[in-house]
Structure formats: C-alpha cells, structure tokens
Amino acid sequence: MKLSVLAEKLALKPVTEMCDKEITGVYISDMVSDVIANAKPGDLLVTVQIHNNVIAAANLVDIAGIVVTQGKLPTEDVRKMAEKAQIPIFSTDLSRWQVTTMLYEAGVR
C-alpha cells in the first residue's frame, strides 16, 4: 500500500516533505535496538521515539516511513535529516494501539 493512501485513510499529518513510497509492512517499537534489528526494509515504523539517532537507524535498515504517535513532533533538525534520508514522518494524536488497529482495518496485514 502507498504511504499517501495510508496517510489519508488514517488522517496522519505529514510533518516532512512527502515522498511517496510503497509500504510492505509495519514495525511498532520504542526501543532503538529492537527497531534496527527487527524492522524490515519497506516497513512503516510506528513509535514515540523521534530523534536523530532513530532517523539514522531507520535509514540504515531502509525503513520507508515513520508515524509518531501521542501527538509528538520532531524538531526542525530531525525533520531536515529525515527529508535528506527521504523518510517521511507523519504525526498523529492517536496511541500506538489505535494506529495499529486502524492500519489493520486499512488493509495492512
């Protein structure tokens, strides 16, 4: 499923420049070592952790995009870094659990 389609369905707010990509899976975690070892290339990462080390990790393992939950927002530096790495970041006020159920309902399995 395309990132843009998902963002629309879940009413996610893009906080970086959009570069549309195909999402092939989802990984949900707030521990950086868990993310880097277990997220697959093309995954959408759902997390509350949004700082430069997370973007670096996401870029190293080719994560396609990031959804930041609980209304958290990346700083300007982090946004720039994500744009350079072409990893779109979306923000939502929903919890990780709410996002999870909505992703499932949207057809991401």
Partner: peptide, 16 residues
C-alpha cells in the same frame, strides 16, 4: 528516554 538501554546492542552485533 531516547529509547536506548534494552540491553540488545551487543546481542545484535553477535547475531549479525
């Protein structure tokens, strides 16, 4: 607070 400290770093190096 930054999402470190799971104690998975060295095990990840070993596994990979």
């Amino acid at each position: 607070q930054r999402g470190f400290g799971a104690g998975l770093g060295l095990p990840n190096i070993r596994r990979n």
